[in-house]
Design a protein around this nucleic acid. Structure first.
Length: 766
RNA sequence: GGCCCUGUAGCCCAAUUGGCAGAGGCACGCGACUUAAAAUCGCGCCAGUGUGGGUUCGAGUCCCACCAGGGCCA
């Protein structure tokens, strides 16, 4: 095991046999928190570095939209990559929306493939400096690798470049450094690159293949080097055509693909001719074939992929690579380690001390937590200059805070702080036992609240998919491994609520105007007499379309506001705020009140009278519907069912107590105030929040008779009512007796009769 | 460019997961109450489910293609 780790003496087997620096290096390979000199996202305007997750697609900071630059800096990292596999696999354990799971899987970016070692053509292949390792998801195309590409920053570039190519390579390297990753990854047809003058050997056939550098290969992804298979990868194809490199097909495309991409002059109907043409001159086709198919041109003395379908070819090649020591099947992830330090004041200080000789120790446990020093000026040092040295606010802290003496040695405090995510990674655990002075959460409290599958229900926005929700899963797993928490996952069930949207209005210059002051004149919208155009978007300040909840509360009460928000529509979808509709739920509450309380006298109308059979059935049906809907978080449906029941009560002089006692608790979560008031008036001394959720009587849901729709050939032709316990034959007989049904069956042969119990009857004739 | 979500009445939304397209609300119309209006109560109105195919006895629901809106990743 130790042998496989970098820099360890062969033969060393025991920890104590290792030199201190070897021990340190080994530990560093495994530490979950480590310092590293890495290319980071530096945002001079914010005066801080940012995690990949905090940088938008167009290279701006997620907060504030400022430009972000790559630059190397020594920073704290958290080794989230050590948990890649479990973070991906354990998504199986949780009840989350599939799109969020998918986003996390994509972000983690698991890909199966193989690593392949390409020896340099002139080297002895003994030293690691003479081997280029690449990762590929398509080891089956190895016979088609006709060149290699290193990222311009790849450490081998300097040593392999020939003198003749040296100037060109250096010029290209500095040109590439000036481009952003986003730029470099953009699918430009025009590829750039420079030949290093060096060659590698393709391990499958010992062919000498040229080594290029090109900026479409990124150092931060995979090994920073690729084997290029131009026949089967579009970017490699574009590159090879541009620089006139051999394009060797090793997978046979589908007929459709050949037809579609063949050059002019081919007989597109003659499959054999197309294939022959492709094998002879794949470079004349207009694209790379990236799909799967049978292998061709892929054979050496020991292994043949010819005729094998892609999955089989992949494993055959991986096996061969492993047998010959040229590589092995492996899994690669897109997720990078998490850049965990920030140059901000408002963040948790690291409990870390730096010794004068550079070694690092943790702050003594008795001195935890490390509190931020009081400072007058705690702003980050913002700058327009991307090369300005980072200045953390804590570097301006009093010397008494910055220096700590331990055993006579003066240590310097770490002056970076943790990112805002640090707190959200574990707050849910602290909330369980917030006053515990001994532990971050007591074991008993943790088991009680988190037991089973973690937090029962976590409601939040989808924007956290690859930030908070990934980071906190990582921390939770670390805590789980250390035995501090009992579940492998923090959030058993996740629910994403949608956004509230509202109409927004722009004037003729395209500037947003205050939506509340816009007048609607039969679909023509004006603001201060000027016409404005209406659009639509997430409610908020930027679109000037926010509706203050205070106004709604003031006018209708907060039960109405609450009810309205729940009634808008499915919780997980974005919904339009339409002030006009509020009166609907407000009327419901007023009607409810009038049903229960005499408006004139204020007398409670709930009596001990028995409910009649129909009302009882309605009640129990409602209990079931509301219960099911609340479980499914379909609050809009639950409220609709209660409105329906309430409408049934309108004609009654008094409300039977058995109805009231069940109905009010059903509504209480949605309209707590009015329900509490009615509950008290009904004679209860305890709050309604302490009462049990009503349960329905299944017997009350069973009807004596059922009305069946009768279809003939799938079209509704009649309806029959039969006793609930009628058997199929009886139902069918009843159906045939219906006049209209009989008419549509007249003179035809019955082919089939489908009786779906409690649903319908379909008679197929022909 | 790839992937994901959504599309049902003038509007917001339901539809027991493949079984009668309508629960509820808004808006609108008519009627009752009222001197009148508001409020209230009653009654009514409107779509064949974005488009085109397919599977099925039967499709809003499943499959394929396309269109539109929103999102994620390049």
């Amino acid at each position: 095991m130790l042998d496989t780790l970098g820099g360890v003496e062969p033969g060393a087997r025991k920890w104590t046999e290792l030199a201190p620096d070897q021990q340190a290096r080994l530990l560093d390979e495994y530490r979950l928190a480590y310092l590293a000199e890495v290319p980071v996202n530096w945002c001079p305007a914010l005066g801080t570095v940012l995690a990949n997750e905090e940088v938008t697609n167009d290279g701006k900071s997620e907060r504030g939209n400022h430009p972000v630059y790559k630059r190397p800096m020594k920073q704290w990292m958290l080794r989230i990559t050590a948990y890649c596999e479990r973070l991906a696999d354990d998504l199986e354990l949780v009840d989350w929306p599939e799109p969020i799971k998918l986003m996390q899987r994509n972000w983690i970016g698991r890909s199966e493939g193989a690593e392949v070692h390409f020896p340099l053509a002139y080297g002895s292949a003994q030293s690691p400096d003479e081997i280029i390792t690449v990762f590929t998801t398509r080891p089956d195309t190895l016979f088609g690798a006709t060149y290699m590409v290193l990222a311009p920053e790849h450490p081998l570039v300097g040593s392999i470049t020939t003198d003749a190519q040296s100037d060109a390579v250096k010029a290209y390297q500095s040109q590439a450094a000036a481009r952003s990753d986003i730029d470099r990854q953009a699918d430009a047809k025009e590829k750039t690159g420079v030949f290093t003058g060096a060659y590698a050997l393709n391990p499958v056939d010992n062919d000498k293949i040229p080594i290029w550098i090109a900026d479409y290969v990124m150092m931060g992804y995979g090994t920073g080097a690729i084997m290029a298979v131009p026949a089967h990868d579009q970017r490699d194809f574009d590159f090879a055509r541009q620089f006139d490199i051999e394009i060797k097909p090793v997978v046979l495309p589908t007929q459709d693909w050949l037809k579609h991409h063949a050059p002019e002059g081919c007989d597109k109907e003659d499959v054999h001719d197309l294939m022959a043409h492709y094998v002879a001159a794949a470079n004349t086709f207009d694209a790379a074939f990236g799909g799967t198919g049978a292998g061709i041109n892929s054979e050496n003395d020991e292994v043949s992929l010819n005729g094998l379908l892609t999955p089989d070819a992949k494993s055959a090649m991986s096996d061969w690579l492993k047998r010959r020591g040229f590589g092995k099947a492996t899994i690669q992830y897109k997720l990078r380690d998490w850049l965990f330090s920030r140059q901000r004041y408002w963040g948790e200080p690291f409990p870390i001390l730096h010794a004068p000789d550079g070694h690092i120790i943790p702050v003594n446990e008795a001195d935890l937590p490390v509190a931020l020093p009081e400072m007058d000026d705690f702003k980050p040092s913002a700058s327009d200059d991307p090369d300005a040295p980072p200045q953390t606010p804590l570097s301006r802290a009093p010397a008494s805070w910055k220096t700590v003496e331990v055993n006579g040695v003066k240590y310097a405090r770490e002056l970076n702080t943790m990112p805002q995510w640090a707190g959200s990674c574990w707050y849910y655990l602290r909330y369980l036992d917030a006053h515990n002075e001994d532990r971050f959460v007591g074991e008993e409290a943790e088991r009680y609240w988190m037991g089973g599958n973690g937090i029962d229900l976590y409601v939040g926005g989808a924007e956290h998919a690859v930030l908070h929700l990934l980071y906190s899963r990582f921390w939770h797993k670390v805590l789980h491994d250390l035995g501090h928490v009992s579940t492998p996952e923090p959030f058993g069930r996740l629910f994403n609520q949608g956004y509230i949207q509202a109409y927004a209005y722009t004037d003729q210059r395209g500037v947003y105007v205050d939506a509340e002051k816009v007048q609607d004149n039969d679909g023509r919208f004006t603001f201060g007499g000027e016409p404005v155009s209406r659009e639509f978007g997430k409610m908020g300040k930027s679109l000037k379309n926010a509706v203050g909840p205070d106004d709604v509360c003031e006018k209708y009460g907060c039960d109405t506001l609450r009810l309205y928000e729940m009634y808008l529509g499915p919780l997980d979808q974005s919904k339009v705020w339409n002030t006009r509709d509020i009166v609907g739920v407000h009327r419901f509450l007023q009607r409810l009140w009038r049903n229960f309380v005499d408006e004139e006298t204020g007398e409670l109308l709930v009596t001990s009278d028995r409910a009649d059979e129909a009302l009882k059935r309605k009640l129990h049906k409602t209990i079931k519907r509301v219960t099911d809907a609340m479980d499914a978080m379909a609050f809009n449906v639950a409220i609709a069912a209660l409105i329906e029941l309430n409408n049934e009560l309108v004609g009654l002089k008094t409300i039977p107590r058995e109805v009231a006692e069940n109905m009010i608790p059903l509504l209480a979560p949605s309209a707590p105030h009015i329900c509490e008031e009615l509950w008290q008036r009904m004679g209860h001394e305890d709050s309604i929040s302490t009462t049990n959720w009503p349960t329905h009587d299944p017997a009350m849901l069973i009807e004596d008779t059922i009305e069946y729709p009768v279809q003939v050939n799938g079209k509704l032709r009649g309806k029959v009512t039969v006793p609930t316990d009628a058997d199929d034959a009886a139902i069918e007989a009843a159906a045939r007796e219906d006049e209209n049904v009989a008419e549509h069956m007249a003179g035809k042969t019955v082919r089939k009769v489908i009786v779906v119990p409690k649903r319908l009857i379909n008679i197929v004739v022909g």
